[in-house]
Design a protein around this nucleic acid. Structure first.
Lengths: 231, 231, 231, 231
DNA sequence: GATGAATGAGATTTCATTCAT
DNA sequence: GATGAATGAAATCTCATTCAT
């Protein structure tokens, strides 16, 4: 039923293999803009340059399409984060900084739309919510908690509640992603996620680091952030 | 809202006057659960103890109902925050703490669903998004920025970028609200918003406050947070 | 949620109660004409004097509608047949005659379309086929077999294979029903089911062959059938 | 069907010539199972071991395929029946018996599905119904009527209404075919069409009732049927 | 004021049909 | 001759909205 004929002519094949990804990209964009229910498959199809019917060659239903969009989205990023942590030997605050900056890069890609999507549809897709909670939320939280624990053990950080501090760690970036896909259109400028990230890290440094006895002398080497325009 | 009809026996009139609020409450709950598009007016009606037709006596359309839900929701809270700031004479960090704690209280009320709603539907209701951005987002950000500026001027805080720091200030609480209405069902325990709030403030204190020469003696009196289970 | 208001005004109520039956009648006619798959709900609706949407107030899906049509159709007739047999004390051949004639009456009602429907759709609705086989086919076959057995026991009939003879008993009438809803339109005249029934009974009584030495005396009293145009 | 292409190595050509028949076989099976509308060409194609597109090399449309299935199906059988009658010189009842038994053989072939199909789709394919009515139904009914007339003329049969009796003659077998393709799956055993056929013929010969004055002498030579286990 | 039966526009989904390869 | 990716018309089904009562 396959492979028999000359059906493997290069162009068609390439097309067929590219289609799912094209559709997923289009779907992510549409879902991000309007949410699951308000997205019409006709729009997704148009955006992907095909017709409605074609979608059903690759995905059994709107719901399946949605799940596919979410499933294959952020998991790889999490894995990359885990790899970074596993290899790193730098100071814990630097590691956190790297993780956040790495993550901030996603903030300008289409993937940044996923959190908003999940947030919205968790109620309508409990199964998907569970999947995402397990494979993305918990794993990424575990990642940060591991670093925090390491920092405490090494004496870099004060004793702290890993879970709550993790939430404080990720909140600004996460919120920035949500912002980009909701209010940014109505705000004046563009949110500079990277700047936000640096500001956040600066706040963290002076809060997290044991750095109690910062005497004036050593202070300068740490305040590298833009906060202090004039010094 | 209307004249002395012959049907105005007290109880009935009370009912009649309560209706809009009852409907708005039901609508908020439904919209929060499923989002705008996925919410069926039949469900809203059932939750409010009326029938679909009745909704149209009070709201011209589903869209109008949604807008009403959002409009009358958080604006009063903002005003209260502004009043607090206007009257306050306490240290800036304490003022921020009060604002956040005050806000945290909303986290357990139905109002906590609004941010998620707005976030989600901003794309479908640009007009509403603009309204909310102006009346809630900007005003509340201005509030925090004012306090920050005051803190800097008074020498309590280091120089800082008001907007970015504000985003860091509000992020954990905001995220907690979103969490409550999305993942909480799939997570093990319940997120203790008030504990989160205190953790966050503790982080802020040691990051924001000039507190450079915290000598060991004074340090202890400030770390009141639960982070340090055994001391 | 009900019974509270003045909703029980007579006209509406009557309408609401009549609707399901009206729809079922329309549906039976449509399904009989075109079969299940080829029937469009829009046609059923039009025939019932309502719109598509209304159908869904009473039946959850096309499939459910179909099942309802079949379920409430012939079971009562079977029960009536069973009652006739239970009460009867007449000669067995007369009883069979009564059953067949009674049944022949259905041949001119809309119910006569059911066998064709079931026959056709048994493959697509196994569950329904099972229901019908049990509640209609088996019960009616059991009915005839009981009469046959009685006839044999009383010495009225020759020994015979109940099941096979039953099939021969019911075949002409059943086929006539199928005919009415398939070829009658393309044939010249109309099939006179009642005449067919009488012919069939006559065959049962005497067989096809020139009633061997049935002596003239007894022969006359029995050959009441139209076969013999010239007498 | 076509010239000496360069591709005409024997096997391929045989394949090519076999295709239409293979497709018709597959189509008959599918149509019989699900009916015309519910049959998907994809299934027909799969069953025939080709792809959807290939069907269109041989048949212009689904409808044409359906018509082809029906047209080439039973007409030859009718012709064979006509030949049998033309040649026969046996007693009329024996001739009828032969015709029925001959026909009963079809009951176990795929052709047995045709009557069900035609029955179902007569409404949707009036033209086809007319064709079938003319070429199959009328011709086969004429066949039986001719034999009946012959029997009456020869004094073998009583006077009778040819059309109605013909319907009684064919009903059990026809119904058995319909049964096979509808309820057989849901019934316990398998219907023995040949046994049914013999029972039916026995009924025709003697009727149901205890052969009134068939005197013992002549009776024995006729009752050859299995009904009477012990005599 | 409240009801709830009815509507019909619009969405998802299916599948016969086409056509470049 | 055969393929199978793509199409798009048509069907089912949903639900915001209306309106007679």
């Amino acid at each position: 039923m396959e492979g028999r004929g000359p059906s493997s002519c290069a162009r068609w094949r390439r097309r067929k293999e590219a289609r799912p990804a094209e559709i997923l990209t289009a779907a992510l964009a549409s879902f991000a803009e309007r949410g699951f229910a308000a997205t019409r498959l006709e729009d997704v199809a148009a955006r992907a340059g095909v017709t409605k019917g074609t979608l059903y060659l690759y995905f059994r239903s709107k719901e399946e399409l949605f799940k596919a969009v979410v499933r294959q989205s952020l998991v790889p990023s999490i894995a990359r984060g885990e790899a970074i942590v596993a290899q790193s030997d730098e100071p814990s605050i630097a590691l956190i900084e790297r993780l956040l900056l790495e993550w901030a890069k996603l903030g300008t890609t289409p993937l940044s739309a996923i959190p908003k999507l999940i947030l919205t549809e968790a109620g309508n897709f409990p199964e998907l919510a569970r999947f995402y909670h397990q494979e993305v939320v918990q794993r990424s939280m575990a990642l940060f908690q591991a670093v925090l624990r390491r920092g405490v053990e090494r004496g870099e950080f004060r004793p702290l509640d890993g879970e709550l501090v993790t939430r404080c760690l990720v909140a600004p970036l996460l919120l920035a992603m949500l912002w980009r896909h909701s209010f940014e259109a109505h705000a004046k400028g563009t949110l500079d996620i990277s700047a936000l990230c640096r500001t956040h890290i600066d706040l963290l440094k002076h809060g997290l680091t044991r750095g109690r006895p910062k005497n004036a002398a050593t202070a300068t080497e740490e305040s590298e952030v833009s906060h202090e325009p004039a010094r």
